[in-house]
Amino acid sequence: MKLLYFAWIRERVGLAEETLDPPPDVVNVTTLLDWLKSLDGGHALALSDPAMVRVAVNQEYAGPDTRVGGGDEVALFPPVTGG
């Protein structure tokens, strides 16, 4: 699974992107975020406030129950501030 991080989530994780192989019990956005938070302090800090984390799966906005799998591109970022 390809993970992309943007803005302050990228800074806190310490990476712009990484490829990970989540365990089988990671089936949707909620379980993915829980697993990512367990990886290390950077991921835990970046994802500590769920209200500030937006998720896109294959470049489409996703909700907590959106399914994720091995071939997906999953992006994590704060609420957008363009314009």
């Binding site: 943007f6 896109a56 957008v80 501030t81 363009g82 314009g83």
Partner: peptide, 24 residues
């Protein structure tokens, strides 16, 4: 709609390079 949906993020930097991410 662009301001709340298009994936852009703004960071303000002072002349010394210290920055802060703009909050939604």
């Amino acid at each position: 709609r662009l301001k709340t949906e298009a994936p852009f993020w703004k960071r303000e930097e002072d002349p010394d390079g210290n920055g802060r991410w703009v909050a939604a």
